[in-house]
Amino acid sequence: MKHTILVIIIFWLAWQTGLSQNQYETKIPNIRKVLIEKIPGTLLIEQSQNNVFKIETDKEPSEIVEDERTRGLKPVTSSYDNTGLGLSLVQSGSNVTISGPNQFDATGNYTIFLPPEVEVSVDLTNPFSGQLVEIRGLKNSLEVKTLSGDIKFSNITGPTVFHSISGNIEGSFSDLNQEAPSSIISISGLIDLAMPSNTKAEVKLMSVSGKIYSGFEIEKEKPNKNKDPRAGELAQISGIGQKTSGKINGGGTSLILQSISGNIYFRNK
């Protein structure tokens, strides 16, 4: 009873102060994959509770640019803000795409909370994208692409498919998912990766002109027997670039770390 009255009062208050509608819930059925692109600011991704998927921003509505002429019209060509947060959210099949506007505006901080089962794909290769993505505690399958933006992460498990042109890729795994391979590539940025010391994997580390450091004992592969019947008993010519490959802790899923000019730091923790 007390509670009911309180709720009524709260509503009355909310109405009184003209509380704006800046928190709302939507139900989207059958999400299998979440694609995130062109986020106008820094992006933080965290695990959510209860299959809920939530977006937060500190961006003020007034900061969200709006063209006076477009009032009442919906853009046909590009995405539009249907979340009230300066982002559009579009479902197509089992995929949901979250996308920002085509504007140079990277002033906001966005946090997206995702449930553990969805696949996550972050594409910040658009020049309108912000410069940093950070992923914390996600057990999801992750794909991240950036141009110059850094990719930071902590306590993830993968499988991961990370690619950056000049951004640094650094962070730690809490465990390495053995279901599928993980691949991390930076063209000119560094790769600094920490994994639990008991991680089992088949690693391939390669840097064309950078240096490779490893805290793990890598058991070198025995010379590979060529599986091509035509090659017969010919030994395979091994090695592309500065390459180290082999098993750690007896081997497991495939883990690829590659860079052209960046150093690779492969740490055990």
Partner: peptide, 18 residues
């Protein structure tokens, strides 16, 4: 009749107008 604590719990739950 509402205690401070009741109201504060409501605030904590997000009804900051309380």
């Amino acid at each position: 009749w509402l205690s401070d604590e009741d109201i504060m719990l409501e605030v904590k739950q997000g009804n900051i107008d309380a």
